[in-house]
Design a protein around this nucleic acid. Structure first.
Length: 155
DNA sequence: ATTCGCTAGCGCCCCCTGCTGGA
DNA sequence: TCCAGCAGGGGGCGCTAGCGAAT
């Protein structure tokens, strides 16, 4: 039937469906499922970065971060290719974001106006135009701003 | 049973560029 | 014409989670 390894993996997988997180960070009280996750997290507090790049002076908390860094900076390996154009990326998430430029998909909707973005940070940046944070402008979104709000937004 | 190594994924921030409207 | 504001596209890193393999 199942090998002991398979049973072990299954048992571990089942734990992912629970909220059990017995390993707590003593510095911020955040809890984690495994010791490894906790160790990595504590390293972010202490600044411990065991994975050092051999080609520059950068260092990272996890091996995955180092691999990704090396692809970006040194090997330029780009495993994720767009099937619609020549674009290729180090990360799957970047390809996903790129594909939205083909499909026109805009999942990040502004709750104050009709603007929608393909990228979460673009929406966050857009929101500054509503709050006036660091910006001074005529408000382009006449659909959702009253004249009173305009006077606030424009300083 | 536990740990290691790796991959996947989400999020954040920044830079560069092109467009647009007002001075 | 110049400049500032804004959005689009993309690069790079921080961090967490899941899983196969090794210990």
């Amino acid at each position: 039937m199942f090998t002991s390894s398979r049973v072990s993996s299954f048992n571990r997988h089942m734990k992912t469906h629970t909220s059990e997180k017995p390993h707590m960070c003593h510095l911020c009280l955040k809890a984690f499922r495994t010791v490894t996750l906790l160790r990595n997290h504590v390293n972010t507090h202490t600044g411990t970065r065991p994975y050092k790049c051999g080609d520059c002076d950068m260092a990272f908390v996890t091996s995955g971060e180092l691999v990704r860094h090396r692809r970006y900076r040194h090997t330029h390996e780009k495993p994720f290719s767009c099937s619609l154009c020549k674009y290729a990326s180090v990360e799957a998430s970047k390809l996903k974001r790129h594909i939205r430029s083909h499909t026109g998909e805009r999942p990040f909707q502004c709750r104050l106006c009709s603007y929608a973005s393909k990228d979460s940070y673009k929406l966050k940046r857009h929101m500054r135009t509503h709050s006036g944070e660091g910006l001074l402008t005529t408000v382009s979104c006449a659909a959702c701003w009253s004249s009173e709000a305009l006077s606030v937004g424009s300083g």
